[in-house]
């Protein structure tokens, strides 16, 4: 709840900022588009294939030096009773949903950072701790981070987590697409372990083509929607599903890149310091008027 309140508070502040920005600045521009490679990679998640074995959760923790326990512990399907979110202890989680077409075949959905094509977290970060690599992954640098957590607010998928329980040098935690492993020519840990190859790793443009083919071949199996193809300007991780994505707890997002919004707000607030100054001037003015009123009443 606390986070939600914080979010609401920031939203309100944002709205004020935008309004202020609207008055004062038309010169601010969104950051130039991120440099992306033609061959940038991605992962296509076929939720109709995933069986919810949660091997990916285990593998992810293993390679990120998080306490993982034994693989057998992940056979426990009772965790599906609650919907989980990726957090500082698990960078990816699998949730299970009821399948309206077949109660015996539940739908399992892996959640992790989507690695947006135009990531809001990167734009929101005021110290450049985030990097959008041309190959696709969005990574985060512990040495630069000041812990402002703007990225957490900016993310349209609500992914970055913060190590609140660490007093000294808490980290922002999110999926890094196993960038280091990829540099070594390895697959991301989750993709490598998936027994079903429900996670298809490849070039993003190939994956979109494959997803389209799958929908075309089995129109009864899939809804005609590749999540992440256009959402918030496109994401590296793409999803296929047999039902509407809103039923699988995905937020409904437009096709406009998220940074455009966050940057406008930020740049609006801070451009030449005009909006803060005018805001303070406005507040000062109100105070001054009220002061006069209360004085006149006293007299």
């Amino acid at each position: 709840m606390a986070a939600q309140n914080r979010r609401d508070f920031l939203k309100t502040m944002g709205i004020i900022g935008v309004t202020a920005a609207g008055f004062s600045t038309s010169t601010t521009k969104a950051q130039e588009k991120f440099k992306l490679s033609e061959d940038r990679i991605g992962v296509l998640v076929d939720t109709t294939v995933c069986i919810g074995c949660r091997n990916c959760e285990w593998a992810c923790k293993k390679v990120h030096d998080l306490p993982a326990g034994s693989l057998e512990e992940y056979n426990d399907r009772s965790v599906f009773e609650n919907k989980r979110r990726p957090d500082e202890h698990a960078l990816t989680v699998v949730n299970e949903f009821e399948n309206p077409d077949n109660v015996l075949l539940p739908v399992d959905v892996k959640v992790q950072c989507m690695h947006c094509e135009e990531p809001a977290c990167v734009s929101a970060c005021i110290v450049n701790a985030y990097t959008k690599h041309p190959e696709g992954p969005v990574t985060w640098d512990s040495d630069k981070c000041i812990g402002c957590r703007y990225c957490m607010v900016a993310c349209p998928w609500q992914i970055p987590a913060f190590e609140y329980d660490k007093a000294i040098q808490p980290n922002i935690m999110k999926c890094d697409f196993c960038y280091d492993r990829q540099q070594e020519g390895k697959l991301p840990a989750c993709v490598e372990i998936c027994p079903e190859e429900a996670l298809i790793f490849g070039k993003r443009r190939d994956l979109i083509e494959i997803a389209r083919q799958k929908i075309k071949r089995e129109p009864d199996r899939y809804v005609d929607h590749i999540l992440g193809e256009n959402e918030v300007g496109g994401t590296s991780w793409l999803y296929l599903a047999g039902q509407n994505f809103s039923k699988l707890d995905f937020p409904k997002l437009g096709t406009d890149p998220a940074p455009g919004v966050t940057e406008k707000i930020q740049h609006g607030i801070f451009a030449y310091f005009i909006p803060p100054i005018s805001l303070y001037a406005l507040l000062g003015g109100i105070m001054w008027i009220n002061r006069g009123k209360s004085k006149s009443k006293e007299v």
């Binding site: 294939v49 697959l187 027994p195 079903e196 298809i200 790793f201 490849g202």
Partner: peptide, 18 residues
């Protein structure tokens, strides 16, 4: 092979399991 050029069809492990 899981890491391969053409990923339009699942690898053998994926195919069996699917």
């Amino acid at each position: 092979e899981r890491k391969r050029e053409d990923v339009s069809k699942p690898d053998l492990m994926g195919a069996y399991h699917q």
